[in-house]
Design a protein around this nucleic acid. Structure first.
Lengths: 242, 242
DNA sequence: ATCTGTCGGATTGTCCGACAAAATGCCGCC
DNA sequence: GGCGGCATTTTGTCGGACAATCCGACAGAT
Protein backbone atom coordinates (compact mmCIF):
# COMPACT_ATOMS: atom_id res chain seq x y z
CA UNK A 1 0.00 0.00 0.00
CA UNK A 2 2.81 2.43 0.86
CA UNK A 3 4.10 2.85 -2.65
CA UNK A 4 4.23 6.60 -2.52
CA UNK A 5 6.36 8.50 -0.14
CA UNK A 6 5.00 11.82 1.06
CA UNK A 7 5.89 14.32 -1.60
CA UNK A 8 8.08 17.05 -0.24
CA UNK A 9 8.17 20.46 -1.79
CA UNK A 10 10.81 22.43 -0.03
CA UNK A 11 10.19 26.15 -0.03
CA UNK A 12 12.53 28.27 -2.11
CA UNK A 13 14.58 29.57 0.79
CA UNK A 14 15.39 26.06 1.83
CA UNK A 15 16.44 24.98 -1.61
CA UNK A 16 18.63 28.02 -1.96
CA UNK A 17 20.30 27.22 1.33
CA UNK A 18 20.74 23.64 0.21
CA UNK A 19 22.29 24.77 -3.06
CA UNK A 20 24.88 26.88 -1.31
CA UNK A 21 25.58 24.20 1.26
CA UNK A 22 26.10 21.69 -1.49
CA UNK A 23 28.67 23.93 -3.15
CA UNK A 24 30.46 24.38 0.13
CA UNK A 25 30.58 20.68 0.91
CA UNK A 26 31.76 19.90 -2.59
CA UNK A 27 34.61 22.32 -2.14
CA UNK A 28 33.51 24.60 -4.97
CA UNK A 29 33.15 27.36 -2.43
CA UNK A 30 36.16 27.33 -0.17
CA UNK A 31 36.76 28.65 3.30
CA UNK A 32 37.07 32.40 3.22
CA UNK A 33 35.59 32.90 -0.20
CA UNK A 34 33.41 35.99 -0.28
CA UNK A 35 29.76 35.46 -1.06
CA UNK A 36 28.14 37.68 -3.68
CA UNK A 37 25.88 40.43 -2.36
CA UNK A 38 22.25 39.70 -1.59
CA UNK A 39 20.87 41.43 -4.67
CA UNK A 40 23.31 39.58 -6.84
CA UNK A 41 22.30 36.27 -5.31
CA UNK A 42 18.66 37.17 -5.67
CA UNK A 43 19.18 37.75 -9.38
CA UNK A 44 21.13 34.53 -9.80
CA UNK A 45 18.50 32.41 -8.09
CA UNK A 46 15.75 34.42 -9.81
CA UNK A 47 14.13 35.08 -6.49
CA UNK A 48 13.38 37.98 -4.22
CA UNK A 49 15.97 39.37 -1.88
CA UNK A 50 13.82 38.59 1.16
CA UNK A 51 13.85 34.96 0.15
CA UNK A 52 17.62 34.95 -0.22
CA UNK A 53 17.98 36.52 3.17
CA UNK A 54 15.99 33.75 4.82
CA UNK A 55 18.28 31.22 3.22
CA UNK A 56 21.30 33.15 4.44
CA UNK A 57 20.06 33.17 8.02
CA UNK A 58 19.79 29.42 7.90
CA UNK A 59 23.29 29.00 6.55
CA UNK A 60 24.57 31.47 9.06
CA UNK A 61 23.22 29.57 12.02
CA UNK A 62 24.80 26.41 10.66
CA UNK A 63 28.10 28.26 10.73
CA UNK A 64 28.61 27.80 7.00
CA UNK A 65 28.74 31.49 6.28
CA UNK A 66 29.93 34.21 8.57
CA UNK A 67 30.78 37.82 8.63
CA UNK A 68 34.17 39.08 9.67
CA UNK A 69 33.69 41.48 12.55
CA UNK A 70 32.90 44.95 11.38
CA UNK A 71 32.40 43.89 7.82
CA UNK A 72 29.36 43.64 5.65
CA UNK A 73 30.42 40.96 3.28
CA UNK A 74 29.43 37.45 4.08
CA UNK A 75 32.10 34.83 3.60
CA UNK A 76 32.10 31.09 3.34
CA UNK A 77 33.31 29.59 6.58
CA UNK A 78 33.94 26.18 8.02
CA UNK A 79 32.02 25.66 11.24
CA UNK A 80 34.30 25.97 14.21
CA UNK A 81 34.23 23.60 17.12
CA UNK A 82 32.50 26.17 19.28
CA UNK A 83 29.58 26.53 16.86
CA UNK A 84 28.86 22.86 16.75
CA UNK A 85 29.53 22.17 20.40
CA UNK A 86 27.01 24.75 21.51
CA UNK A 87 24.36 23.04 19.41
CA UNK A 88 25.19 19.69 20.94
CA UNK A 89 25.10 20.94 24.50
CA UNK A 90 21.81 22.67 23.83
CA UNK A 91 20.35 19.44 22.57
CA UNK A 92 21.66 17.47 25.51
CA UNK A 93 20.44 19.99 28.05
CA UNK A 94 16.99 20.04 26.47
CA UNK A 95 17.03 16.26 26.34
CA UNK A 96 17.12 16.25 30.11
CA UNK A 97 20.51 14.62 30.29
CA UNK A 98 21.69 14.10 33.83
CA UNK A 99 24.99 15.01 35.35
CA UNK A 100 25.75 11.34 35.73
CA UNK A 101 25.39 10.67 32.03
CA UNK A 102 27.83 13.43 31.18
CA UNK A 103 30.23 12.20 33.78
CA UNK A 104 29.97 8.65 32.50
CA UNK A 105 30.71 9.80 28.98
CA UNK A 106 33.73 11.71 30.21
CA UNK A 107 34.95 8.61 32.03
CA UNK A 108 34.87 6.84 28.71
CA UNK A 109 36.37 9.47 26.50
CA UNK A 110 38.88 11.43 28.54
CA UNK A 111 41.21 8.79 29.91
CA UNK A 112 41.76 7.26 26.50
CA UNK A 113 42.17 10.69 25.00
CA UNK A 114 44.84 11.42 27.57
CA UNK A 115 46.59 8.19 26.72
CA UNK A 116 46.58 9.11 23.07
CA UNK A 117 47.81 12.59 23.84
CA UNK A 118 50.75 11.14 25.71
CA UNK A 119 51.79 9.27 22.61
CA UNK A 120 51.20 11.97 20.06
CA UNK A 121 51.75 15.33 21.70
CA UNK A 122 54.37 17.72 20.36
CA UNK A 123 56.49 20.29 22.15
CA UNK A 124 54.16 23.22 21.58
CA UNK A 125 51.23 21.46 23.12
CA UNK A 126 53.29 20.43 26.11
CA UNK A 127 54.21 24.04 26.57
CA UNK A 128 50.57 25.11 26.32
CA UNK A 129 49.52 22.61 28.96
CA UNK A 130 52.25 23.86 31.26
CA UNK A 131 51.07 27.42 30.91
CA UNK A 132 47.49 26.44 31.53
CA UNK A 133 48.43 24.90 34.84
CA UNK A 134 50.17 28.10 35.77
CA UNK A 135 47.12 30.06 34.76
CA UNK A 136 44.93 27.89 36.93
CA UNK A 137 47.17 28.46 39.91
CA UNK A 138 47.13 32.17 39.22
CA UNK A 139 43.35 32.22 39.01
CA UNK A 140 43.11 31.92 42.76
CA UNK A 141 39.68 32.78 44.09
CA UNK A 142 38.30 33.76 40.70
CA UNK A 143 36.18 30.70 40.04
CA UNK A 144 35.07 31.82 36.59
CA UNK A 145 38.63 32.11 35.44
CA UNK A 146 39.52 28.87 37.15
CA UNK A 147 36.77 26.98 35.36
CA UNK A 148 37.72 28.51 32.03
CA UNK A 149 41.25 27.30 32.60
CA UNK A 150 40.17 23.79 33.41
CA UNK A 151 38.07 23.69 30.27
CA UNK A 152 41.00 24.98 28.26
CA UNK A 153 43.22 22.36 29.79
CA UNK A 154 40.89 19.59 28.71
CA UNK A 155 40.67 21.05 25.26
CA UNK A 156 44.39 21.48 24.87
CA UNK A 157 44.81 17.91 25.97
CA UNK A 158 42.28 16.70 23.43
CA UNK A 159 44.09 18.66 20.74
CA UNK A 160 47.31 16.96 21.76
CA UNK A 161 45.73 13.67 20.76
CA UNK A 162 45.95 14.94 17.19
CA UNK A 163 42.42 13.73 16.68
CA UNK A 164 39.92 16.38 15.69
CA UNK A 165 37.01 14.04 16.31
CA UNK A 166 37.95 13.73 19.96
CA UNK A 167 38.31 17.49 20.26
CA UNK A 168 34.80 17.92 18.99
CA UNK A 169 33.38 15.10 21.06
CA UNK A 170 34.83 16.49 24.21
CA UNK A 171 33.86 20.13 23.83
CA UNK A 172 30.19 19.74 24.74
CA UNK A 173 31.05 17.68 27.79
CA UNK A 174 33.19 20.29 29.46
CA UNK A 175 30.70 22.93 28.46
CA UNK A 176 27.93 21.08 30.24
CA UNK A 177 30.07 20.47 33.25
CA UNK A 178 31.40 23.96 33.73
CA UNK A 179 28.44 25.64 35.45
CA UNK A 180 28.46 23.07 38.21
CA UNK A 181 32.23 22.96 38.20
CA UNK A 182 32.27 26.61 39.20
CA UNK A 183 29.88 25.84 42.01
CA UNK A 184 32.07 23.01 43.19
CA UNK A 185 35.29 25.02 43.14
CA UNK A 186 33.60 27.64 45.23
CA UNK A 187 32.24 25.24 47.79
CA UNK A 188 34.81 22.49 48.11
CA UNK A 189 38.05 23.89 49.51
CA UNK A 190 40.30 21.02 48.56
CA UNK A 191 39.07 20.93 44.98
CA UNK A 192 41.62 23.42 43.74
CA UNK A 193 44.65 21.59 45.07
CA UNK A 194 43.38 18.24 43.82
CA UNK A 195 42.87 19.65 40.36
CA UNK A 196 46.34 21.06 40.32
CA UNK A 197 47.81 17.79 41.44
CA UNK A 198 45.98 15.85 38.77
CA UNK A 199 46.96 18.29 36.08
CA UNK A 200 50.63 18.13 37.13
CA UNK A 201 50.65 14.35 37.09
CA UNK A 202 48.91 14.35 33.74
CA UNK A 203 51.41 16.78 32.34
CA UNK A 204 54.30 14.67 33.63
CA UNK A 205 52.89 11.49 32.14
CA UNK A 206 52.20 13.16 28.83
CA UNK A 207 55.63 14.71 28.84
CA UNK A 208 57.20 11.31 29.28
CA UNK A 209 54.95 9.85 26.63
CA UNK A 210 53.60 7.42 29.19
CA UNK A 211 50.09 6.74 27.88
CA UNK A 212 49.16 4.30 30.62
CA UNK A 213 50.02 6.73 33.40
CA UNK A 214 48.16 9.49 31.63
CA UNK A 215 45.11 7.29 31.36
CA UNK A 216 45.23 6.35 35.01
CA UNK A 217 45.61 9.90 36.21
CA UNK A 218 42.88 11.17 34.02
CA UNK A 219 40.60 8.52 35.40
CA UNK A 220 41.41 9.63 38.91
CA UNK A 221 40.90 13.22 37.87
CA UNK A 222 37.42 12.58 36.52
CA UNK A 223 36.51 10.40 39.46
CA UNK A 224 37.56 13.26 41.67
CA UNK A 225 35.14 15.49 39.87
CA UNK A 226 32.33 13.26 40.91
CA UNK A 227 33.43 13.19 44.51
CA UNK A 228 33.72 16.95 44.42
CA UNK A 229 30.24 17.31 43.07
CA UNK A 230 28.87 15.09 45.76
CA UNK A 231 30.64 17.12 48.40
CA UNK A 232 29.15 20.25 46.89
CA UNK A 233 25.72 18.72 47.28
CA UNK A 234 25.06 18.23 43.59
CA UNK A 235 23.14 15.08 42.84
CA UNK A 236 24.17 12.82 39.99
CA UNK A 237 20.56 12.76 38.85
CA UNK A 238 20.38 16.51 38.44
CA UNK A 239 19.85 17.55 34.90
CA UNK A 240 22.61 19.56 33.32
CA UNK A 241 21.93 23.04 32.06
CA UNK A 242 23.54 25.48 29.73
CA UNK B 1 46.59 49.49 24.06
CA UNK B 2 43.63 47.13 23.59
CA UNK B 3 41.36 48.58 26.21
CA UNK B 4 38.24 48.51 24.11
CA UNK B 5 36.58 45.38 22.89
CA UNK B 6 34.94 45.53 19.49
CA UNK B 7 31.45 46.92 20.00
CA UNK B 8 28.79 44.54 18.81
CA UNK B 9 25.26 45.51 17.97
CA UNK B 10 23.20 42.47 17.16
CA UNK B 11 20.62 43.06 14.48
CA UNK B 12 16.99 42.72 15.43
CA UNK B 13 16.44 39.30 13.87
CA UNK B 14 19.25 37.89 15.96
CA UNK B 15 17.93 39.33 19.18
CA UNK B 16 14.49 38.00 18.43
CA UNK B 17 15.91 34.55 17.84
CA UNK B 18 17.87 34.83 21.05
CA UNK B 19 14.75 35.86 22.95
CA UNK B 20 12.83 32.82 21.77
CA UNK B 21 15.77 30.52 22.38
CA UNK B 22 16.09 31.85 25.88
CA UNK B 23 12.44 31.08 26.61
CA UNK B 24 12.87 27.58 25.25
CA UNK B 25 15.97 26.85 27.28
CA UNK B 26 14.35 28.24 30.40
CA UNK B 27 11.45 25.87 29.91
CA UNK B 28 8.88 28.64 29.54
CA UNK B 29 8.18 27.32 26.06
CA UNK B 30 7.92 23.58 26.21
CA UNK B 31 8.32 20.90 23.61
CA UNK B 32 5.32 20.81 21.32
CA UNK B 33 3.98 24.21 22.28
CA UNK B 34 2.61 25.98 19.22
CA UNK B 35 4.28 29.24 18.29
CA UNK B 36 2.09 32.26 17.59
CA UNK B 37 1.70 33.20 13.95
CA UNK B 38 4.24 35.41 12.25
CA UNK B 39 2.07 38.52 12.22
CA UNK B 40 1.33 38.06 15.88
CA UNK B 41 5.00 37.69 16.69
CA UNK B 42 5.80 40.72 14.57
CA UNK B 43 3.35 42.78 16.59
CA UNK B 44 4.68 41.48 19.89
CA UNK B 45 8.28 42.27 19.04
CA UNK B 46 7.19 45.53 17.40
CA UNK B 47 9.01 44.61 14.25
CA UNK B 48 8.22 43.74 10.66
CA UNK B 49 7.15 40.30 9.63
CA UNK B 50 10.18 39.91 7.36
CA UNK B 51 12.41 40.44 10.35
CA UNK B 52 10.55 37.85 12.37
CA UNK B 53 10.83 35.39 9.52
CA UNK B 54 14.60 35.72 9.45
CA UNK B 55 14.71 34.96 13.14
CA UNK B 56 12.47 31.95 12.60
CA UNK B 57 14.74 30.54 9.91
CA UNK B 58 17.63 30.70 12.31
CA UNK B 59 15.74 28.92 15.06
CA UNK B 60 14.50 26.38 12.58
CA UNK B 61 17.96 25.41 11.47
CA UNK B 62 18.96 24.99 15.09
CA UNK B 63 16.12 22.55 15.43
CA UNK B 64 14.46 24.59 18.16
CA UNK B 65 11.27 25.07 16.19
CA UNK B 66 9.84 22.74 13.62
CA UNK B 67 6.77 22.17 11.57
CA UNK B 68 4.85 18.94 11.72
CA UNK B 69 4.65 17.50 8.24
CA UNK B 70 1.78 18.93 6.30
CA UNK B 71 1.10 21.57 8.87
CA UNK B 72 1.54 25.29 8.83
CA UNK B 73 1.98 26.01 12.47
CA UNK B 74 5.45 26.16 13.86
CA UNK B 75 5.95 24.41 17.14
CA UNK B 76 8.62 24.45 19.73
CA UNK B 77 10.77 21.37 19.43
CA UNK B 78 13.71 19.84 21.14
CA UNK B 79 16.52 19.15 18.69
CA UNK B 80 16.64 15.49 17.84
CA UNK B 81 19.82 13.54 17.65
CA UNK B 82 19.69 13.51 13.86
CA UNK B 83 19.60 17.33 13.64
CA UNK B 84 22.63 17.78 15.77
CA UNK B 85 24.58 14.85 14.42
CA UNK B 86 24.34 16.13 10.88
CA UNK B 87 25.85 19.42 11.97
CA UNK B 88 28.70 17.63 13.68
CA UNK B 89 29.49 15.41 10.73
CA UNK B 90 29.39 18.40 8.41
CA UNK B 91 31.90 20.18 10.59
CA UNK B 92 34.16 17.17 10.78
CA UNK B 93 34.04 16.53 7.05
CA UNK B 94 34.84 20.17 6.32
CA UNK B 95 37.59 20.04 8.89
CA UNK B 96 39.34 17.48 6.73
CA UNK B 97 39.09 14.74 9.31
CA UNK B 98 40.60 11.49 8.13
CA UNK B 99 39.12 8.07 8.21
CA UNK B 100 41.70 7.06 10.76
CA UNK B 101 40.62 9.73 13.20
CA UNK B 102 37.02 8.61 13.03
CA UNK B 103 38.05 5.03 13.45
CA UNK B 104 40.23 5.88 16.42
CA UNK B 105 37.36 7.72 18.07
CA UNK B 106 35.13 4.72 17.53
CA UNK B 107 37.74 2.47 19.06
CA UNK B 108 37.55 4.63 22.14
CA UNK B 109 33.82 5.08 22.41
CA UNK B 110 32.16 1.95 21.11
CA UNK B 111 33.71 -0.85 23.15
CA UNK B 112 32.99 0.91 26.41
CA UNK B 113 29.53 1.76 25.24
CA UNK B 114 28.95 -1.89 24.49
CA UNK B 115 30.18 -2.80 27.96
CA UNK B 116 27.75 -0.34 29.48
CA UNK B 117 24.94 -1.61 27.31
CA UNK B 118 25.56 -5.12 28.55
CA UNK B 119 25.02 -3.94 32.08
CA UNK B 120 22.04 -1.71 31.53
CA UNK B 121 20.03 -3.04 28.61
CA UNK B 122 16.42 -3.99 29.04
CA UNK B 123 14.35 -6.64 27.30
CA UNK B 124 12.95 -4.37 24.61
CA UNK B 125 16.36 -3.28 23.48
CA UNK B 126 17.59 -6.83 23.39
CA UNK B 127 14.67 -7.66 21.16
CA UNK B 128 15.44 -4.71 18.90
CA UNK B 129 19.05 -5.79 18.50
CA UNK B 130 17.93 -9.30 17.63
CA UNK B 131 15.65 -8.03 14.92
CA UNK B 132 18.33 -5.78 13.51
CA UNK B 133 20.63 -8.74 13.03
CA UNK B 134 17.86 -10.52 11.19
CA UNK B 135 17.32 -7.45 9.06
CA UNK B 136 20.99 -7.34 8.20
CA UNK B 137 20.94 -10.99 7.12
CA UNK B 138 17.85 -10.31 5.06
CA UNK B 139 19.46 -7.33 3.37
CA UNK B 140 21.57 -9.64 1.25
CA UNK B 141 23.15 -7.89 -1.69
CA UNK B 142 21.44 -4.56 -1.00
CA UNK B 143 24.41 -2.70 0.39
CA UNK B 144 22.44 0.47 1.15
CA UNK B 145 20.03 -1.44 3.30
CA UNK B 146 22.88 -3.40 4.86
CA UNK B 147 24.71 -0.24 5.86
CA UNK B 148 21.54 1.31 7.24
CA UNK B 149 21.09 -1.76 9.38
CA UNK B 150 24.62 -1.66 10.71
CA UNK B 151 24.17 1.98 11.63
CA UNK B 152 20.89 1.18 13.34
CA UNK B 153 22.55 -1.63 15.22
CA UNK B 154 25.19 0.70 16.58
CA UNK B 155 22.57 3.21 17.52
CA UNK B 156 20.34 0.71 19.23
CA UNK B 157 23.35 -0.52 21.12
CA UNK B 158 24.21 3.00 22.22
CA UNK B 159 20.65 3.51 23.35
CA UNK B 160 20.91 0.36 25.40
CA UNK B 161 23.63 2.02 27.41
CA UNK B 162 20.89 4.29 28.76
CA UNK B 163 23.19 7.22 28.21
CA UNK B 164 21.90 9.87 25.87
CA UNK B 165 25.31 11.52 25.67
CA UNK B 166 26.82 8.41 24.18
CA UNK B 167 23.98 8.11 21.69
CA UNK B 168 24.67 11.60 20.51
CA UNK B 169 28.43 11.18 20.47
CA UNK B 170 28.20 8.07 18.39
CA UNK B 171 25.73 9.22 15.77
CA UNK B 172 28.17 11.37 13.76
CA UNK B 173 30.76 8.61 13.74
CA UNK B 174 28.59 6.03 12.06
CA UNK B 175 27.28 8.67 9.72
CA UNK B 176 30.79 9.50 8.59
CA UNK B 177 31.69 5.88 8.24
CA UNK B 178 28.66 4.74 6.29
CA UNK B 179 29.60 5.89 2.78
CA UNK B 180 32.82 3.94 2.85
CA UNK B 181 31.16 1.11 4.72
CA UNK B 182 28.88 0.59 1.74
CA UNK B 183 31.89 0.51 -0.53
CA UNK B 184 33.55 -2.05 1.68
CA UNK B 185 30.54 -4.34 1.90
CA UNK B 186 30.33 -4.33 -1.86
CA UNK B 187 33.98 -5.09 -2.40
CA UNK B 188 35.00 -7.36 0.43
CA UNK B 189 33.11 -10.66 0.21
CA UNK B 190 33.81 -11.87 3.72
CA UNK B 191 32.72 -8.58 5.28
CA UNK B 192 29.10 -9.58 5.59
CA UNK B 193 29.70 -12.80 7.45
CA UNK B 194 32.20 -11.18 9.78
CA UNK B 195 29.75 -8.45 10.65
CA UNK B 196 27.06 -10.97 11.38
CA UNK B 197 29.36 -12.98 13.58
CA UNK B 198 30.41 -9.91 15.55
CA UNK B 199 26.83 -8.78 15.98
CA UNK B 200 25.78 -12.22 17.19
CA UNK B 201 28.57 -12.40 19.73
CA UNK B 202 27.79 -8.90 20.86
CA UNK B 203 24.15 -9.73 21.28
CA UNK B 204 25.00 -12.84 23.25
CA UNK B 205 27.35 -10.96 25.56
CA UNK B 206 24.85 -8.18 26.07
CA UNK B 207 22.08 -10.68 26.66
CA UNK B 208 24.12 -12.32 29.40
CA UNK B 209 25.01 -8.93 30.85
CA UNK B 210 28.66 -9.72 30.32
CA UNK B 211 30.20 -6.28 29.87
CA UNK B 212 33.74 -7.50 29.44
CA UNK B 213 32.84 -9.86 26.63
CA UNK B 214 30.78 -7.16 24.95
CA UNK B 215 33.72 -4.79 25.12
CA UNK B 216 36.10 -7.32 23.65
CA UNK B 217 33.82 -8.25 20.80
CA UNK B 218 33.08 -4.68 19.96
CA UNK B 219 36.78 -4.02 19.84
CA UNK B 220 37.24 -6.88 17.42
CA UNK B 221 34.30 -5.64 15.42
CA UNK B 222 35.73 -2.16 15.01
CA UNK B 223 39.19 -3.51 14.28
CA UNK B 224 37.60 -5.62 11.60
CA UNK B 225 36.18 -2.51 10.04
CA UNK B 226 39.65 -1.19 9.58
CA UNK B 227 40.90 -4.38 8.03
CA UNK B 228 37.92 -4.38 5.73
CA UNK B 229 38.61 -0.85 4.64
CA UNK B 230 42.18 -1.71 3.88
CA UNK B 231 41.08 -4.69 1.84
CA UNK B 232 38.71 -2.42 -0.06
CA UNK B 233 41.64 -0.18 -0.89
CA UNK B 234 40.57 2.73 1.28
CA UNK B 235 43.47 4.50 2.89
CA UNK B 236 43.32 5.50 6.53
CA UNK B 237 44.50 8.95 5.55
CA UNK B 238 41.58 9.55 3.23
CA UNK B 239 39.35 12.33 4.36
CA UNK B 240 35.84 11.39 5.27
CA UNK B 241 32.93 12.90 3.41
CA UNK B 242 29.25 13.35 3.94
C1' DA C 1 55.19 59.45 2.41
C1' DT C 2 51.73 58.83 5.80
C1' DC C 3 47.63 60.34 7.85
C1' DT C 4 43.01 62.50 7.71
C1' DG C 5 38.65 64.15 5.96
C1' DT C 6 35.31 63.65 2.58
C1' DC C 7 32.43 61.80 -1.09
C1' DG C 8 29.89 58.47 -4.04
C1' DG C 9 28.64 53.78 -4.67
C1' DA C 10 27.46 49.38 -2.90
C1' DT C 11 25.33 46.57 0.64
C1' DT C 12 22.78 45.54 4.62
C1' DG C 13 18.93 45.92 8.06
C1' DT C 14 14.41 46.95 8.32
C1' DC C 15 10.03 48.38 6.80
C1' DC C 16 5.56 48.49 3.99
C1' DG C 17 2.14 46.54 1.23
C1' DA C 18 0.36 42.82 -1.60
C1' DC C 19 -1.23 38.26 -3.37
C1' DA C 20 -1.75 33.26 -4.34
C1' DA C 21 -1.83 28.82 -2.23
C1' DA C 22 -2.54 26.07 1.47
C1' DA C 23 -4.25 24.97 6.13
C1' DT C 24 -7.70 25.87 9.80
C1' DG C 25 -11.88 26.59 11.73
C1' DC C 26 -16.68 27.00 11.59
C1' DC C 27 -21.25 25.91 10.11
C1' DG C 28 -24.91 23.88 8.24
C1' DC C 29 -26.36 19.34 6.60
C1' DC C 30 -26.99 14.42 6.65
C1' DG D 1 -22.08 12.46 15.68
C1' DG D 2 -19.77 12.65 11.36
C1' DC D 3 -18.98 15.15 7.01
C1' DG D 4 -18.62 18.36 3.10
C1' DG D 5 -18.08 23.13 1.98
C1' DC D 6 -17.04 27.82 2.64
C1' DA D 7 -14.84 31.84 5.02
C1' DT D 8 -10.73 33.04 7.54
C1' DT D 9 -5.98 32.76 8.75
C1' DT D 10 -1.31 31.91 7.80
C1' DT D 11 2.53 31.12 5.07
C1' DG D 12 5.63 31.76 1.03
C1' DT D 13 7.06 34.96 -2.06
C1' DC D 14 7.19 39.21 -4.37
C1' DG D 15 8.17 44.22 -5.39
C1' DG D 16 9.77 48.46 -3.80
C1' DA D 17 11.69 51.76 -0.40
C1' DC D 18 14.90 54.15 2.88
C1' DA D 19 18.39 55.00 6.43
C1' DA D 20 22.72 53.38 8.14
C1' DT D 21 27.03 52.00 7.23
C1' DC D 22 30.85 49.98 4.96
C1' DC D 23 34.23 50.32 0.97
C1' DG D 24 37.26 52.36 -2.05
C1' DA D 25 39.10 56.32 -3.89
C1' DC D 26 40.69 60.80 -3.85
C1' DA D 27 42.28 65.15 -2.29
C1' DG D 28 44.36 67.84 1.36
C1' DA D 29 47.24 68.36 5.53
C1' DT D 30 51.33 67.21 8.37
Amino acid sequence: MDIFEPVQVDPAYRRIAAAVEEKVMAGTLKDGDPLPGEVHLARQFAVNRSTVREALRELQSKGLITRRPGSKRLRIAHPRTADVASGVSRALALGGVTFYEVWEAMMIVEPQTAALAARKRDADQLEELTQLIARFEAAGGNSREAVATVVDFFRALARSSQNEVLVLAQAPLTRLLSPTLAQMIDQVPQARTRIIEAQRKLLAAIGKGDGEQARIWMEKHIRDFRRGYELAGISADDQVTV
